[in-house]
């Protein structure tokens, strides 16, 4: 498989690897995928009082394209409002990273991870309201 420059860049210099405190009410955590399927992504967002995503982190078990997709996703959500982040589509990731058809599902996983993190944050807000 020939990887695009951008996939290689994210793989070699992943942005925002790490973890945020998952019990913090301002943090939303999404974990998607399954080890049996060969891909698990964890994406976290930290949301400011103004509803803007201040920070994001990821950890991924998966192929290089999955790592690149989640790394890119954390870059993209930072600075966005929750509503804006919800508009990120896997097709945008495919285009940006030049993913071949067989790797599209890795980008789908990244979109799912963003949504899962947003949903987790929303659920926490509701509980604390």
């Amino acid at each position: 498989m020939a990887y695009s420059e951008k996939v290689l860049d994210h793989y070699n210099n992943p942005r925002n690897v790490g973890a945020l405190p998952k019990d913090d009410p301002s943090v939303g955590t999404g974990v998607v995928g399954a080890p049996e399927c060969g891909d698990v992504m964890k994406l976290q967002i930290k949301v400011g009082a103004n509803g803007v995503i201040e920070d994001a982190r990821f950890k991924t078990f998966g192929c290089g394209s999955a790592i690149a997709s989640s790394s890119l996703a954390t870059e993209w959500v930072k600075g966005k409002t929750l509503a804006e982040a919800a508009l990120i589509r896997n097709t945008d990731i495919v285009q940006e990273l030049n993913l071949p058809p067989i790797k599209i599902h890795c980008s789908v996983l990244a979109e799912d991870a963003i949504r899962a993190a947003l949903a987790d944050f929303a659920a926490k807000q509701e509980k604390n309201a």
């Binding site: 992943p14 690897v17 080890p35 698990v40 964890k42 950890k59 991924t60 078990f61 790592i67």
Partner: peptide, 8 residues
């Protein structure tokens, strides 16, 4: 492994 959610 440092970036693997499973390892974590």
């Amino acid at each position: 492994r440092e970036m693997s959610p499973l390892w974590e």
